[in-house]
Design a protein around this nucleic acid. Sequence first.
DNA 1: TTGACAGCGCATCTGG
DNA 2: CCAGATGCGG
DNA 3: GTCAA
Length: 558
Amino acid sequence: MQRNHSAPQPSVSVSVKPNKPLTRKTSLLRYDTSTPPSESSFTGKTPSVLPSSSQRPNPERRVVSDPTGGSLVLKNSTGIASMLQKNQKRKREAIKLVPEDQQIFRGLDFFYLPADDKNPKRKMRITKAKEYGAKWTTELEDDVTHIVVDNSLTYEHIMKYLKETLKVQALPKRAIFVNEDYPIDCIAFRRILDAKQDKYAVKGAVTESEEKPASQRSPQAAQDEEDISRRTPPREDSASQARDVEGEEETQEISQNPSPARNFQREMGFNDPLAEMIEFVQTKKHLPLDDEENEERPSSRDSMQDPGDSDDSRERSPSPVRKPSKKKHRGPKGSFNQNNFSCMTGGTGETTSSNPNARTIEILQEMGDFYEQVKDQWRTRAYRMAIGTLKKTTNKIRTAEEAQELPKIGKRIADKIEEIVLTDGLRRLEFAKQDPTDRVLQKFLKIYGVGPSQGLRWAQQGHKTLEDLKANVNLTANQKIGIAHYDDFDTRIPREEVTALASSGDIDFLITKPSTTTTTPLLTFLDDLVRHLTSTGFLVAALAVPRGDSSSKWHGAC
DNA sequence: TTGACAGCGCATCTGG
DNA sequence: CCAGATGCGG
DNA sequence: GTCAA
């Protein structure tokens, strides 16, 4: 969508409407900022200085003089920080009869196999389950909801045992088989998990995936199942059923609507600002707005595949020296290697919906979006890459081990993937979104011109709202504009061409003219253009204006 | 355990 | 005033 | 966040 006229050098780009962090899953992939501060401060790392990184300060030791007096050392210790922190040690403390609202097993009836608590481990598990509201039944009654089988037992054992020892004719209607891990995991996640997961299947039982083809199974087993058969591993209703008992308040509504309180009207009312602009451009000069497309084709960049991992196009040119030479496109290396443009990721999203890991991707996206909002460049990138590889994966990833095999997916994300598969959610994500400190910070960070440094400072100074800021803080020109247009900047642009792919946070124009070798003449034109649009009332604010006559971009809002 | 993960333009701040 | 450092954005 | 040194 972005018109990249690959004209040699002289090019002036006009960026209208500074976008701001996206709000929802539709987010398109955009680049992050380089703001290491967030890294350390958010992770709560120790103030160890970064000696080498000459280019960046260590936020931890940044002493800020507070306008209102005193000075303080920036050090984030809660909120996002805590989340970003490596406090991943999940403690499974032993509680005695947890609070009512945490009794996830309430209403459930567990029948253990073996049906006693002689085994200390099993006894422990039973106790635990009871603490969480489960009822322990030693008779295979009709109200049994779960038959929890020791991992040491196999499906055949069970069947044999049930039929021969217990003389069971039929299993309780609602009962489903799970292995001993199931209750444990449920407790770990504080919620009823999907009992259909393969990992909870009783050893030797038919798993969901292999379920249908009965032909595949050993005739023996198939036979044994007989009467009890289809209710056994086929735990179709299990999850939902159990969930019902529990109440579905759990279902997370991680998504908050992006408040589409847009001002389309303006676009509507205005016949078409964009068209008008283009028209202006064309009349203004004989700029070949059309040719561009043609000349561009041939040099089309590399294919669009190779999203994720490739990244390591580390053929990196030795020195960061930027040659004024007329190199074509961007850098020699990866240049645009990332899937930062919707057009490169197949914005139509065919990939997403069909992918077996769609749901996982969706949630990881939210994590990525979150980190983008808090402007944690690196984590944002990390999630993006992980998502990239996940998108290329054709089989469904269910466990952490499985996930960690994949490139760009380490332990942390692997664990998250597993949790997502298990719980259809991510507690960290929900927590992150809830935390009050974070919310304030997030709010501030969405102001154009406010980054981690300033945002954190304000948040720690106790400011809570945009009004607070307007009243008690020295705002830069851009920040004022950022606040004034807070909602606008936070909203995406739905223009047709753009919508085709997704939606856009902004629109970029690249102005070129053949045969020009410097930007000077183009700047003149740019100036005219901006002046015109401003007078027309289309452009409302200038955020970054080119300086000198050597470059290049104008940032503003319309 | 630690540093890289792109580099750059513009705005603002800091300090001489 | 200016130069360098820092913050921010895409 | 992941990865490599």
